[in-house]
């Protein structure tokens, strides 16, 4: 099955799209693995970088209780 990024034809992952990024993090705020996200290696790297940028800017949490 196609993943979310492919389905919606998203070529670039922006760190400001918090709602999109939230679909790739678990309730604790950790980035999901590729087995769960179903992303390609390239997409996973882009998501990872975007999540880290969003965390630094305070848009996403580092940890969530």
């Amino acid at each position: 099955m196609a993943n979310i990024l492919t389905q919606n034809d998203i070529r670039h992952v922006d760190y400001k799209d918090v709602d999109l990024l939230r679909q790739f993090i678990n309730p604790h705020g950790r980035v999901m693995g590729r087995k769960k996200t179903g992303l390609t290696a390239k997409q996973q790297r882009a998501v990872e970088a975007a999540v880290k940028r969003a965390r630094f800017m305070g848009l996403l949490p580092y940890i969530q209780k």
């Binding site: 979310i4 919606n8 998203i10 670039h12 922006d14 999109l20 940028r53 800017m57 305070g58």
Partner: peptide
């Protein structure tokens, strides 16, 4: 408080999502 500078592309990178899921 904080800032971030990084390289990007000219096109709009914001995702155009319809319904979340």
């Amino acid at each position: 408080m904080r800032f971030i500078v990084f390289r990007t592309v000219r096109e709009d990178t914001r995702a155009k999502m319809k319904a979340p899921q």
